[in-house]
Nucleic acid binder design. Structure first.
Lengths: 351, 351
DNA sequence: CTGAAAGCGCTTACAG
DNA sequence: CTGAAAGCGCTTACAG
């Protein structure tokens, strides 16, 4: 690569054209691989490109062509393994297709999400992929949701089989371990006031799935066994809730945590109370925590295939982009299955 | 916010100007907050902006003004907690200053890093912040490194006090636990062939720091006690190395892992061998693993203050950007201190 | 305080 | 196969 010293003017297409002895139009065509360029001209152009270390200015190209080949990816928190991995999966596929990703982090704040979307609009992204925190607004480009199923206009969504996943966890506790007092500590199930209706849909589905699974198993479900956290799903919330559950007259034999951070909070509470897991209290988690195998005890949970989920979301968006479907037809919701990963926190032997 | 239906032409500055009954120049000035605009004109412009839901096209603005207010952030792997958190810290500060971040993931491949840098150049970023995997090349804008100290042209770097951190860990094992057979399992310390000289500098510093600390403590260091992984620092590598260490005639009493993934690999090996930590083998880790408290046993390690590290890198870059220092003066290397977090894997009681 | 005009660096009909 | 010209949507001296 040629030297690109700081502060020196970068070569432009005009420089390349001049160096190659052709017009800017021909230089542009040669670089874009158009066929109507003579081999001789093409060679001279590429030689000039090499020599000058030319890299086309994407700002100018996008402004002129009307397409940035940029995709916005909006997530609540990249420091959470699920989002980071899904993000990587999506980015991987997008780059293969010649797109690049603009990543925005919302810290789970609806207003920061809205600001991120305006920023993406200002950058003229061709589409967006997002795990919403409730601040979604249409910016006029195709949108694919993941993690939460939208009832908002979108070209598609990829979501987990939430109810099915919860049912797998419940069935395991009931059939394998014969437990019948199972409590639920999950993410919020009702949208917050003033928040778009699709928010926390997955929380809703998990909770409903829990109730349904217990019903199918013929188990009672005292109201005090059903608890939800705030939208941030902090460990601290789960810790507090767990202490309350353990203080009940009839404490649960098992807790199903609806998110990994919540599962960690439950574990924290058991440590503090001297409660042994799984001997005194079984624990299963919907999401798989980082280093699930090394946690004490290893946590039985569901594998979401995070990366694949990100890839599918990207694929859905790419499909919409090539088909030119701007979200005017029925959104396509893809449901990805979950896999039970049996470890020790449920009461199973080493695995 | 006004409706922005798919497929409909977005309002431009010309639309706003027409609606407000002023020229595009005046509309532009009104929006930029320039003082030489009459209050009446300003109000009419803003009203039109609101009504039309206008958002300036940043492509056009950047192309014209020569500044994108975009900063490239390049990391080996966002799915690793350290990078994700540092990234968030940097992004936070950048956004406060009116910049936006373009995030690139290199998967630790030097060629992907080089490609990411070219992409960022094509996007005319004003500067870059990166944790290099060895593929760095100058793209003509100020660069700040973190995680690795560069000897490459840069305006600055923020790095850990690697040697000091390792010394803290060693001293703890020696003074508090009276151990004298301590092995090291760390990241590579020598740059790979064909890789820029600054790569793996932090690995080098950790290893050298280890040798120095043992020297100061007057402890012997058999060559077979010093092991390094490949650049990916996988758990599997550490697991294999640990099995070899345990099979030595005089196995170590303690292992200092130079990275969190390596510490997890060491733990895996002890599990498989029925070795108890810390009773049979003490373990300390340079990096703090995710959920360090919940791992069995909780791992004694160093707190790097990841977020703050990202913030400092961003601050260094912003300083360079406002001062107009294009990297022509001596790069500023900031060293952030590390904090010992005593848990149980070193042999200490519950903490 | 305001507007006409030039121009950022590209791409793309259009005419040859 | 090639080039002159227009134009993407802004900002910014420049002249009034």
């Amino acid at each position: 690569m040629a030297e690109v010293p700081h502060g020196q003017r970068r070569p432009t297409l005009a420089d390349v054209a001049a160096a190659a002895g052709v017009s800017r139009a021909t230089a542009s065509r040669a670089m874009s691989g158009a066929r109507n360029v003579s081999p001789a001209a093409r060679d001279r152009v590429w030689a000039a490109v090499e020599r000058l270390g030319f890299e086309p200015n994407r700002l100018a190209r996008s402004l002129r062509s009307g397409s940035t080949m940029g995709i916005g990816i909006v997530v609540p928190d990249v420091a959470i393994g699920f989002f980071a991995t899904a993000l990587k999966g999506a980015q991987e596929l997008l780059e293969t297709a010649g797109y690049h990703a603009l990543v925005a982090n919302t810290d789970r704040a609806a207003d920061r999400e809205a600001a991120a979307l305006r920023m993406l609009r200002a950058h003229q992204v061709d589409g967006i992929i997002l795990a919403t925190s409730g601040g979604y607004q249409d910016i006029g480009v195709p949108a694919v949701f993941f993690d939460n199923v939208p009832s908002a206009p979108a070209v598609g969504a990829v979501a987990l089989r939430n109810a099915e996943g919860v049912a797998q966890l419940v069935d395991h506790l009931v059939r394998v371990h014969g437990l019948d007092r199972i409590a639920y500590v999950g993410p919020p199930a009702a949208p917050a006031l003033g928040v778009a209706p699709f928010t926390h849909r997955s929380g809703r589905e998990r909770l409903d799935g829990f109730r349904a699974a217990l019903g199918r198993a013929g188990l009672p479900l005292p109201p005090e066994y059903v608890r939800t956290s705030g939208p941030a799903c902090t460990e601290a919330e789960a810790t507090a809730i767990t202490h309350e559950l353990l203080a009940l007259e009839r404490p649960p034999q098992a807790i199903l945590a609806g998110a990994d951070t919540l599962a960690m909070g439950v574990l924290d509470a058991t440590r503090a109370s001297g409660i042994r897991v799984p001997e005194d209290l079984a624990l299963v988690s919907f999401d798989e925590p980082a280093y699930a195998d090394l946690i004490d005890p290893p946590v039985t949970s569901l594998d979401r295939h995070d990366r694949e989920l990100g890839r599918r979301a990207a694929q859905l968006l790419l499909d919409a982009l090539v088909s030119g479907n701007g979200g005017r037809q029925e959104p396509e919701v893809e449901r990805v299955p979950l896999e039970l990963l049996v470890r020790r926190s449920c009461g199973c032997g080493r695995g």
